Amino acid sequence: MKEGFDFASLNYLNSSDHVSGADLSFIKSYFKDKRFGLILDIATAAGHCSKVFESKLKVGIDLSLNMLKTARSEFGIIPVCATSTQIPFLDQTFDLVSCRIAMHHFENPGRFFSESNRVLKDRGILVLVDSIVDVEDGYLNTIEYFRDNTHIRSLTVKEVINYANNFRLLNYVQTKRKHTFYDWAKRLNADDEKVKQIETKFINLPENIKQELDVCMENGKVISYTDKKGIFIFEKYDIRA
C-alpha cells in the first residue's frame, strides 16, 4: 500500500488537488485568531493541511516514509511513521488533530475517530476533510478503487456523523472540487493504458451520474470531473461530565 505513495510523494506535493482548495481557505479563516500548542496531522501526505494552522509544534503521521520526508522538508513537520488506528502518543497529548482527504483510505474509520479522541485534550479539536458521496456513491467509489486500490470508500455525511459519536459537531461545510482528469488519474503514476481505462469508466457512466459529477468532455476526452468535499469540525466534549 505505502509503496505507491512513496513513489508519488512529489506528485502529491505539487498536486492541484492538495496544494490549495476551498477547504484549506475555509479552515484557515475559521482558525485565523487561534494559535495551538501541539497539533497532529493524520495521514499527512506531503503536509499541506498542517500549513493552515498556527501552532508551536506540528507532528505528522503517515505510512509513507517519502511523504514524511517531503512534509518535514517543505512544512517543518515532525515526522512519525504510524497509522490512523494505532497512534503512538499518550492520551490527551494534542490540542488539535487534523486529517485531510485521507479517511477514504482507512479500513476502520471508527477506530480512527476513537484514536483521535484518545490523543486529544479535553475540548480539543478534530478537523476532518474528505470526499463525500451521495447518489453517485457506488459509481464514484468503484472508479476511485479502480484508480487506486488503497481507496476503501468515501462516506455519506450521515455515516461520518455516526462514526464520530464520541465528538460534538461544531461546524460542517460542503464544497465542490473540480479535478483535472489527467492530473488526478496519473497521480499514482498510472500508465497510459490504465488512464484510458479510467477514462472509459467515466464515459460509460449513466447520464444522471455524469451530471451529478459534472463530467466535462471535449472531443471525446474527459477533461475534468467534480466531487464533493465535506469539512467537519468536531470538539472532544463529554456531555456526561
Rank of each mutant, 00 (worst) to 15 (best):
G47M: 10
E54M: 12
K69P: 00
S64D: 08
I87N: 04
L63I: 15
A46G: 01
E74N: 09
R72K: 14
V59E: 02
L57C: 02
K56H: 02
P79H: 10
Q86M: 06
K58Q: 05
A45F: 07
N66S: 09
A82N: 08
T85R: 11
S55A: 12
S55C: 12
G60D: 07
K69G: 00
I78Y: 09
K51Y: 01
L57R: 14
D62G: 01
E74Y: 03
I78V: 15
K58A: 07
A46W: 11
A82Q: 10
K69T: 11
S55W: 07
P79E: 11
A45P: 08
T44A: 02
A71D: 06
E74P: 00
E54F: 05
A43N: 10
A82F: 11
I61L: 14
C49T: 10
K51V: 12
S73I: 08
A45G: 15
T85F: 07
S84W: 12
T85E: 12
F53N: 04
H48Q: 03
V52I: 13
K56V: 02
H48Y: 09
A43D: 08
S73G: 01
A45Q: 09
P88G: 03
T83A: 10
A46F: 06
V59S: 01
K51F: 01
K56W: 02
I78H: 08
L57Q: 10
L63C: 03
A71E: 09
G47W: 09
K58W: 01
K58C: 02
L68T: 05
F53Y: 09
E54H: 09
C49A: 11
H48S: 01
V52L: 05
A82E: 09
V80P: 00
F75G: 01
T83D: 09
K56G: 00
I77H: 03
D62R: 04
S50T: 14
I61G: 01
I78M: 12
I61H: 02
C81T: 11
T44L: 08
T70G: 00
M67K: 05
T70P: 00
L65T: 14
G60F: 03
I77R: 02
T70V: 15
L57K: 15
Q86F: 05
